[in-house]
Nucleic acid binder design. Sequence first.
DNA 1: ATAAAGTCTATCGTTTTACTAGAGTTTTCA
DNA 2: TGAAAACTCTAGTAAAACGATAGACTTTAT
Lengths: 135, 135
Amino acid sequence: MLSKKTKYGLKALTYLAKVKDREPVQIAEIAKCENISQKFLESILLTLRRNGLLGSKKGKGGGYYLIKEPEEIHMTTVMRVLEGPIAMVPCVSLNFYEKCDDCPDEDECSVHKLMLQVRDSALEVYRNNTLADLL
Amino acid sequence: MLSKKTKYGLKALTYLAKVKDREPVQIAEIAKCENISQKFLESILLTLRRNGLLGSKKGKGGGYYLIKEPEEIHMTTVMRVLEGPIAMVPCVSLNFYEKCDDCPDEDECSVHKLMLQVRDSALEVYRNNTLADLL
DNA sequence: ATAAAGTCTATCGTTTTACTAGAGTTTTCA
DNA sequence: TGAAAACTCTAGTAAAACGATAGACTTTAT
């Protein structure tokens, strides 16, 4: 299941992508328009900023804004930042690989075989979509 | 993330698919060979049986066995039984559709757009794989 | 009859999720 | 310059899900 965190994060990014001239937008505005708990959204925007997807401006008239153009923001990045590994199993993860402690031989493992395909197909979708494609 | 339940279930199905003549295999044997907690495996095999994927024979010499040929067992079925909906979000689920309570318009929703594609690509993988393909 | 094996219900500890509280910091603008 | 607006950050928490375990019960082969 997609976490609410990812869902809200995507919605917020989309919202910000529609803003003209990358003017900073206040958390409260996004939260209200997208029906998101404000405090929760705060922490989500914070992680997006820490991971280089958003910029922020403090003080009166401040807020969050996109740092890159929507065309440059790939869904692979967004998903990895918000949701974590794209693979459903660590043993087929590109960025977060981990060997299974059960499972003596990966090449013989049916789960491995199947999940490799699932990862590749998901990856293709995420690679073919930027934030601009979702507007 | 793929749940252990699904992982173990898949391994057990694969194990059973390799058995000659569909002889019943005891839980303990599968648990031992695949490094799975026996009690946990019990409950998994039970749900597989309840959902028509396995048969069981009670008493001495009993156990679980495949009810269909591996070629007839599609991964779509297995995944839905063990893992639940294939879609990452209820609003794009074929079998478990639910409207989002936030989100006024699905067609305008960026999450919806993206997750539709992810669902379709996953579905294609699961449709193209039967248990026989994983041996 | 007895032992082997599946069935079923209940429980339990841990982790994750979704969210909240509240204090602190920075910036703007009157 | 000072007060208000707005972001930053650290904790914490309730509820749900997950992974696993315990134990009593039922069925069947021999």
